[in-house]
Computed example of a mutant assay.
Amino acid sequence: MHNKTAAPTSPDWDLIRAFLAVVDAGSLTAAAGALATSQPTLSRQIAQLEQQTGAALFERTTRGLSLTEAGDALVEPARRMQAAAQALALAAAGRAQTLAGTVRLTASEMMSAHVLPPILVQLRAAHPEIEIELVASNRVDNLLAREADIAIRMVRPDQGSLVTRHVADYPIGFYAHADYLKGRAPVTPDNFAEHDWVGLDQSPQLIDGFRSAGFNIDRHFFAFRCDNNIVGWEAVRAGMGIGITMQRVAERDPQLVRLLQEFPLPSLPVWLTAHRELRGSPRMRIVFDALAEALGD
């Protein structure tokens, strides 16, 4: 009678996900935070995966955890499993044929705070069965990893697997509150540098824009600096100085005055994007099309 060799146990997805989180984070503490779990739970998952693979996957160093040879060999097949799990989730979401459920959006801070709210009010009134999650962030979320279902961006995405629609171009302008302008010299192309400006702190975006227009400024040109666009805009509305924003936003405040209209400013392109498979869901199609129409108005 021959002894049969036991078939190796296939690691489950939860263990693989825990493994990749530690690989990406470099420590159990950081990985536990990314997965919203506890460090002891994550340690048990790694130990279980090591038991199933029959090898140690990590070793401790002065800088945290580093992969062993066995762990390094596991990374590539684990990434393939991760991609397959994401593809499966996308396919399942795209085939959901009911309107009830959640749609997760991502947009910039200014778009989220000053453009989307009235649009989402109308959407909720028309389709109360659809729940909306909104990630207000200036970073470009990865739609392929399902960090969002639909993204509103000011740059055209380059992933070929996305449905992309250019819905509008939003003109921008220079604005200041009427209270700031009281008692000051009129803002002209000759003296605009003598006025107070509201700009960004760490981001070079505005500095690069001025320099490309032929004005060699540095960060000290801006009397008030903040990388949070909402805070910066509220500073303009409070009378802190001159700022730049979408005309669509500024025109809602009658106390704001548009300045330096002789300076040509580029418009902000508005792109609406979603994963192709998600367009197969009636819920996603409704939200996508409603956003396209409202943002294009």
Rank of each mutant, 00 (worst) to 15 (best):
M1D: 11
L57F: 02
L259C: 06
S66V: 03
A238G: 11
S281T: 08
T273Y: 00
A92N: 07
G54M: 10
I16C: 13
D253W: 00
L144Y: 10
M284Q: 14
I242K: 01
N191H: 12
R95A: 14
P77I: 02
T29I: 12
I16K: 15
E277S: 10
A126W: 08
V103I: 10
F288C: 00
H127S: 08
E50L: 01
A250Y: 03
L200G: 02
P186T: 09
G54F: 03
A136D: 01
H127I: 05
V22N: 09
D201S: 06
A292N: 01
S161M: 14
G209K: 09
A91R: 11
L28N: 06
G54E: 07
D24G: 04
L28K: 10
D253Q: 02
L134C: 08
L65R: 03
A290L: 01
T41K: 04
A84L: 12
V22G: 09
P8L: 02
P254H: 07
T61E: 11
E194W: 11
R139S: 13
G183M: 04
N228L: 06
Q247P: 05
V249L: 07
V270M: 11
H127F: 13
R156S: 04
I230H: 02
V23E: 04
G232R: 09
F221D: 05
L42A: 04
A136V: 02
S27T: 14
E147P: 03
S137A: 02
L143I: 05
V121K: 15
L67N: 08
A100W: 07
R219F: 08
T68F: 06
Q97P: 03
A213V: 14
R211S: 05
V249W: 05
T68I: 13
L123V: 12
D24A: 12
Q122W: 13
Q202I: 03
A84K: 10
G160R: 08
R104C: 07
P186H: 08
A148Q: 03
G160W: 06
A290C: 00
